[in-house]
């Protein structure tokens, strides 16, 4: 009997250690991405693509804000432009430059669609993200992101486009 009791206490320790190690691994990883990197996940996850990541710093070195935000009509809102690949191929939004003439063309899918699956639409390092909204965490690599996960993590303003995405997929 004494041996069995000892057996259970030891395994209790092992179990606690298991919980602790899992907790550490699953703990929200603080992201160290570049300030103002925009993750755009309006439709990507629902369409089975990685979310697109837009680095402001890279584009700012080459173009002033005015070019995209005044001439091309990009709104000052992450995910607020409802960009689709159809619009890009049509020469709108990203497609104004990413057309093989000013910059590389749309066949380089992975260079934009390079975000970790399941990351909600957000601007990295924004004040609201730091002060109000909970930090997002990366999903485990082997687990497939459930479609319902993204809106739950996203900021309230971003919930609507995420919900609209499955509806669009059905139409197709």
């Amino acid at each position: 009997m004494i041996n069995i009791k000892g057996f259970f206490t030891k395994w209790r320790v092992a179990f606690a250690a298991l919980i602790a190690s899992v907790a550490v691994v699953l703990m929200p990883q603080s992201s160290t991405a570049e300030y103002a990197d925009v993750v755009i996940n309006n439709y990507a996850d629902a369409a089975g693509m990685r979310p697109a990541v837009f680095p402001h710093w890279y584009h700012r070195i080459r173009f002033r804000c005015k070019v995209c935000h005044a001439d091309l009509g990009f709104k000052f809102k992450a995910g607020g432009n409802k960009i689709t690949m159809a619009k890009i191929i049509d020469g709108q939004f990203c497609g104004a430059c990413h057309n093989g003439e000013i910059s590389w063309s749309v066949e380089n899918c992975g260079m934009c669609h390079s975000g970790i699956p399941g990351t909600p639409t957000s601007i990295h390092g924004s004040t609201i993200q730091r002060l109000v909204a909970p930090t997002y965490k990366a999903l485990p690599k082997d687990g497939q992101p459930a479609p319902s996960d993204a809106p739950a993590d996203a900021a309230p303003a971003d919930a609507a486009p995420a919900e609209a995405a499955p509806a669009k997929a059905k139409k197709k």
Partner: peptide, 11 residues
């Protein structure tokens, strides 16, 4: 950097 997927070639 925590938002790009390292498993993606384009990254």
């Amino acid at each position: 950097d925590g938002i790009h997927d390292a498993d993606n070639e384009g990254t």
